[in-house]
Computed example of a mutant assay.
Amino acid sequence: MTGQKIIPHLWFDSAAEAAATLYTSLLPGSGIGTVSRYGKAGIEVHGQREGTAMNVQMHLGGQPMLALNGGPRFRPTPAVSYFLNINDRAALDRAWQELGAGGQVHMPLDAYPWAPRYGWLDDRWGVSWQLALGDPAQTGGQVMTPMLLFTGAQAGQAEAALAQYTSIFPKSGVEGILRHDGSGADPEGTVMHAQFQLAGQTFMTGDSALPHAYTFTEANSFVVFCEDQAEIDHYWHALSFVPEAERCGWLKDRFGLSWQIIPRHLPQLLSSPDPKAMETFLGMGRIDIAALERAAK
């Protein structure tokens, strides 16, 4: 992976490799990196067969992303979507067709006040995408930008999340906020759309008080790569809010969004031929780097 601090992570039942193949075919500057597989070192988890892809590293338009085959426990929802800012209409239309095959459309591909061509859909695996014809310079040069939608019990909390996240990560700040005017379901002043930076990376967010039947799930999480134990402890204590959700470096914050707080060299530690390394990892909540290093040796 690159030196990027925060990486989107997708949870699939068994389609991580197929999904990565599709996603990386849509944008130039994309590709699949390392694929780790189940069944090595005698470890079997999530009911996956030996040789099935476990973790798939990929980059879309130059931006890293991770996919896991973790079984049927979690499903993605549109509470987290991935905004693709594509400056070529033919490429946009092709991506829309490929992602939409077998999926569900939320907003059809058409002209809207905010974009000459825009659409929102879930792909066949339930991963949510927003596609717009535009210049990636508008999103900090990123072709792909994560979008967080605060709905249900979390509706109206987008600005509180902005304040917390930008206070925790370095190189962070709010770039702009467009607010609801009170004419619809959302109270006046709540966030219609905001763009912000975390660790120098662009994100989007907004509130929706409409009766959506979804919220955040572990199928969309964000990996935070840490350089040492002090960094792990900092992000863990700043974000963790649901103790029962803590496992293997995973946590949930007070808004229900899932994060993975892990050392950057975790893949090397877990590649140890000694199964004790993986067994130690699977028994952890907050990651203890020293304990993992001892097990890996």
Rank of each mutant, 00 (worst) to 15 (best):
F12P: 05
A20N: 02
G31D: 06
T34L: 14
S36F: 11
E44Q: 13
H46D: 11
R49T: 09
R49G: 13
E50M: 00
M58C: 09
L60I: 14
L60A: 09
L66I: 13
A67T: 11
P72L: 03
R73L: 12
R73W: 09
R75W: 08
P76V: 09
P78N: 02
L84A: 14
L84Y: 12
D93Y: 00
G102M: 04
M107K: 05
L109R: 08
W114I: 06
R117H: 15
W125H: 15
A132Q: 12
D135S: 14
P136K: 04
G140F: 12
G140L: 10
M144K: 12
T145V: 15
F150N: 10
A153W: 12
K171M: 12
I177V: 13
H180S: 02
P187E: 06
A194N: 10
F203R: 02
G206A: 11
D207Y: 10
F216L: 07
T217K: 03
S221Q: 06
A238P: 05
L239A: 06
E244V: 10
W250D: 01
W250N: 02
F255M: 01
I261C: 07
L269A: 07
L269D: 05
L270E: 02
M278W: 11
F281W: 07
F281M: 08
A290I: 09
